[in-house]
Design a binder for these strands. Structure first.
Lengths: 208, 208
DNA sequence: TCCGAGGTCTTGACACTGTCTAGATTTCGT
DNA sequence: ACGAAATCTAGACAGTGTCAAGACCTCGGA
């Protein structure tokens, strides 16, 4: 835990121990992705931004894949919290699925750095236990809400199938939008508008 | 064009000019992705596999991003051909959308190397003219078929919205499956089976 | 036939990266 | 207070992208 009461930014004093290097390195990854894209991420760059020597990251993350895995895990942590909050904030259970779908897209737009790494199999060691547990926990919220919604709304289809369908729809929309592929055909620059039209057809509920 | 009648594999004779280096390098990229993932792709590795010196690729592709852009373009070329063939092979127009959806997934499964690069914005220079034209051409087939299908099947919704919805659904399913995220919740290992269940609900047609 | 221009490829160099090692410094439990 | 463990530094090495200079080949025009 190491909950010290010093700021999580890099101290850059003469201190030998950084105090919060692990988090500072993960912050540095986010900064680097925002500035230079995921191709610009490197152990040495993260160390540089955190004000430590080039070998320091290896102690906390082992290798580059470990650093990215930890960054993905932190992304899924935040992602899960936002999904849970969206589900709970929905006025009535029937609107939970729609609320989650909107929040999913919002996350993809507001946290592109996380989103870009989280769903890329070569950006994380999929056998990492913490990563698996965290990502599965976040996905579980989606599955629960979607399964619940499918029991209310629809006929006797498998709730799991409908959950995966909703998930695929939202994820595909977010991915294609992020990649810029949709921009060839959809004139607007507002993903929420397009999502509203698509979800209206799918879930029958409007977006905010 | 340079259509010589020598095999497109690397000759590795004492010849100074390779004869078909450009294509051989793109083949090498595919091999590398298949063996070591996209992280293992490098200009020098491609040169090594093609039997040329490490500086040779730069002449054809400029830099690493150029090599990957060309590889993506070749992927979209093949992708477009398969989409067109699938649309034309459909018995009746009403089944075209389903045929394209199935072929989309099949492509993602059978050509993971292409698929992994094609939809990754940091893997290609999006301002490349050939890439833009080729990808837009392939996407256009999807849009046409989906728009056509929406006029037949559904109510007065915007055909473009329904086209994008179908695209997002299929692409999201392929991406999540490729990333391994779905495997946490779906017990089977057959994407076609899951796709059949999802599409049955969506398009009303079964898959083969 | 020759010959020069341009396309193709090689070679060498440089800065940068991931990773390994050994060791210095600090923190922590006892 | 002391030893063990955690944390970080410093150096080294192979591999990489990219650039510049030059060698080699091909082809069209004289």
């Amino acid at each position: 835990m190491s909950n010290r009461n010093q700021p999580s930014q890099d101290p850059a004093d003469g201190r030998y121990h950084h105090g919060n290097l692990r988090e500072a390195l993960l912050d540095a990854v986010g900064e680097t992705i925002a500035e230079k894209g995921v191709a610009g991420v490197s152990l040495r760059e993260a160390a540089r931004r955190a004000g430590v020597s080039h070998g320091a990251p290896a102690h906390h993350f082992g290798d580059k894949l470990g650093l990215l895995t930890a960054y993905s895990t932190r992304g899924f942590q935040l992602f899960g919290e936002r999904m849970r909050a969206a589900a709970e904030s929905a006025a009535e259970p029937g609107q939970r699925l729609n609320a989650i779908g909107v929040e999913y897209l919002r996350f993809a737009l507001e946290e592109p750095a996380y989103f870009e790494v989280m769903f890329r199999s070569d950006m994380h060691a999929s056998d990492d236990d913490t990563f698996q547990a965290t990502s599965k926990g976040a996905f579980g919220i989606l599955a629960d809400v979607a399964a619940e919604a499918s029991q209310d709304d629809c006929d006797d289809n498998d709730p799991l199938v409908l959950a995966l369908k909703s998930w695929a729809l939202v994820h595909g929309l977010a991915s294609l939008w992020a990649d810029g592929a949709i921009s060839h055909f959809w004139p607007g620059d507002d993903l929420a508008e397009l999502a509203g039209l698509i979800f209206e057809d799918e879930f029958g509920g409007g977006s905010d």
